[in-house]
Simulated scan of single mutants.
Amino acid sequence: MPKFVSFCLLLLPCLLLAPRTYAQNQQQPDTTLIVYNGQLTGAYSRGGVNRALLSTTQAVTFTRGKHYGLPLNGSFIYGKQDGFLKERELLLNTTPYYYKGRFRAYAIGGFERSNLRGITDRVQLGAGPGWAFYSDTLGREVSVSNLIIRERTNFLDGTTQLTARNSVRLKVAYSIKILTLSAVTFYQPSLADFNNYRFSNLTTLALKLTKALAVNFSYNYTHESQYSEGKVPDNTNVTLGVSYSTRR
Rank of each mutant, 00 (worst) to 15 (best):
E141Y: 02
D121F: 07
L162W: 01
D136A: 07
T180Q: 06
L191P: 08
L191A: 11
V168L: 10
T163D: 09
F199S: 11
L191D: 04
D193C: 11
R165G: 02
S135Q: 14
A127Q: 04
K177V: 05
L116F: 15
S143T: 01
F194I: 12
T160D: 07
D193Y: 12
I176G: 02
V168F: 12
N146T: 06
L170I: 11
L125N: 03
F186N: 07
E151T: 12
G139Q: 04
T137R: 13
V168I: 12
Y187T: 03
T153N: 06
Q161M: 08
I149M: 05
P189N: 11
R140N: 15
R169L: 14
S200F: 09
L170C: 09
R122K: 09
N115E: 12
G126I: 05
V184A: 12
R169C: 03
N146Q: 14
N154D: 11
L125A: 12
N154P: 02
G128E: 05
F133L: 12
V168R: 00
R122P: 01
E151F: 03
K171R: 13
L162F: 11
T159R: 11
F186V: 11
L125F: 13
T163M: 07
D193E: 14
N146I: 02
T204R: 07
S167F: 03
L191R: 09
D157H: 09
F194N: 10
R140P: 05
S143K: 09
A127P: 03
P189V: 10
L181W: 03
R122I: 07
S143V: 04
P189I: 10
V142L: 13
V144I: 13
A132W: 02
S200Q: 13
V123Y: 14
A192F: 10
Y174C: 00
G130H: 06
G130Q: 04
L138G: 10
S175F: 00
I149R: 04
D157K: 06
I149G: 04
R122M: 10
F133I: 11
T160S: 10
E141Q: 10
R169N: 14
N195W: 10
Y134M: 05
L202E: 13
V172F: 05
D121L: 09
E151N: 08
F133N: 01
N195P: 05
R117E: 08
D136N: 15
L202S: 14
L138N: 10
N146E: 11
A164C: 08
R150K: 15
L156R: 09
R198L: 15
V172N: 03
K171P: 00
Q124I: 15
R169W: 01
L181V: 05
P129E: 09
Q188D: 12
N115M: 00
I178D: 08
A132Y: 06
T159Q: 12
L116W: 07
A173W: 02
T137M: 12
D136P: 05
N115V: 05
L156Y: 07
R152P: 00
Q188L: 14
N196A: 13
L156M: 10
L138T: 08
L138P: 03
I176E: 09
D157S: 08
R198D: 14
N201L: 05
A127N: 06
S143H: 06
G139Y: 03
S190D: 14
R122T: 10
V142H: 01
R165A: 00
N146L: 15
L162K: 13
A183W: 00
E151V: 07
T137Q: 13
R165K: 09
E151A: 08
G118F: 07
G128F: 02
V168W: 00
L170S: 04
